[in-house]
């Protein structure tokens, strides 16, 4: 039972990360109908920004400022920086292709992902880098009930993810920007006819979605310590499927999908075998996509033929 709960917590942690990435996928897919393959790499860039913030403050062993401030700077810089990167990618790679056949931006997205990965490889090399979180955040704090340990970092990741998702829900459902985003997602041309600034709305969507991926990258660094330039692609794939499993375009769907995939992965690793984790998770994903392409919380689009 303890093992079960432990694995559940691991799954929730991993799932929170997937959910955050999935939200960005889902939002971008909503407004552009584009599967942004580069999104997973934005998560990787976020992880690197967090790493350099730690180094900048003196390294994990000898931080020159209090830990909460370091965390704040990491999240703000990773979120803001990756958000801007996402906006730039949209502006220069995807915007010229907005009216092209659907396959063109998809292939461009593959190119952007490849370019981003290899630029990072050129700049920072292929070696693994270590956040060394335990040097500045004590893993022994947290919740301990008998043999069950839930450390403070995991708690923070799960709580912060839920807060971010809640904030995003409010933005999308309650604010003017959110209404404009939904309008653009629903019918871009009609939105334009009402005077909605479509370019701005799409850029804002990219900013929000990419910022979430950047923050997820920092979280990944804090929880799993090791970061490397190729960490983004597979994480991005799984997150996209999380978005699909939950129902693309739906925020609660992305959360649910992310959590489910995280938990499934964690249980497969815990109860079956870590060698087969990816294989089994891929299998589950293929099965879900075949059985219910609109996702668990997705609506069948009202499509006119």
């Amino acid at each position: 039972m303890h093992f079960f709960i432990q694995e559940l917590v691991n799954g929730l942690t991993q799932g929170s990360l997937y959910a955050l990435i999935a939200l960005g996928y889902s939002m971008v897919y909503g407004v552009l109908k584009l599967l942004n393959f580069a999104h997973g790499d934005l998560y990787m860039v976020g992880a690197f920004i967090g790493y350099f913030v730690i180094q900048w403050f003196g390294g994990p062993m000898a931080l020159s400022v209090p830990v909460p401030l370091v965390l704040l700077v990491m999240f703000v810089l990773a979120g803001g920086g990756v958000g801007m990167l996402g906006v730039a990618i949209e502006r220069f790679a995807y915007r010229p292709l907005r009216d092209a056949p659907r396959i063109a931006p998809l292939i461009t997205a593959l190119g952007v992902a490849f370019l981003l990965e290899n630029t990072m490889l050129l700049l920072f090399g292929a070696s693994y880098r270590d956040y060394n979180t335990s040097a500045f955040i004590s893993f022994s704090t947290g919740i301990h009930i008998g043999p069950l340990n839930v450390d403070i970092v995991r708690i923070m990741v799960i709580v912060l993810s839920i807060v971010l998702m809640f904030a995003l829900t409010v933005i999308v459902n309650r604010t003017k920007l959110g209404r404009q985003m939904r309008a653009v997602a629903s019918d871009r041309e009609a939105a334009e006819m009402l005077g909605i600034n479509v370019d701005y709305t799409i850029a804002a969507t990219f900013f929000l979605g990419s910022a979430l991926a950047g923050i997820a990258g920092v979280m990944a660094g804090l929880v799993f310590n090791q970061i490397y330039t190729l960490m983004g692609f597979v994480a991005g794939l799984k997150a996209f499927t999380a978005a699909v499993v939950g129902g693309i375009g739906s925020i609660p769907g992305a959360m649910l999908g992310g959590m489910l995939i995280g938990i499934a992965e964690s249980f497969v690793t815990g109860y079956i075998s870590s060698t087969y984790t990816n294989l089994i998770v891929f299998g589950i994903l293929i099965a879900v996509m075949l059985a219910r392409p609109t996702g668990l919380l997705g609506r069948v689009p009202l499509q006119k033929v």
């Binding site: 897919y29 109908k33 584009l34 599967l35 659907r102 998809l106 597979v234 794939l237 996209f240 499927t241 699909v244 060698t275 087969y276 990816n278 294989l279 891929f282 299998g283 994903l285 293929i286 996509m289 075949l290 392409p293």
Partner: peptide
């Protein structure tokens, strides 16, 4: 077979999984 039901991006992602699964398969099975 999935292309009977899925088009565009959905097909892309499911085939991509198939490709990834092949590498995983040859590596581990």
């Amino acid at each position: 077979l999935p292309s009977r039901r899925l088009i565009g991006d959905y097909l892309a992602i499911i085939t991509l999984f198939f490709g990834e699964a092949f590498v995983e398969f040859t590596n581990n099975v």
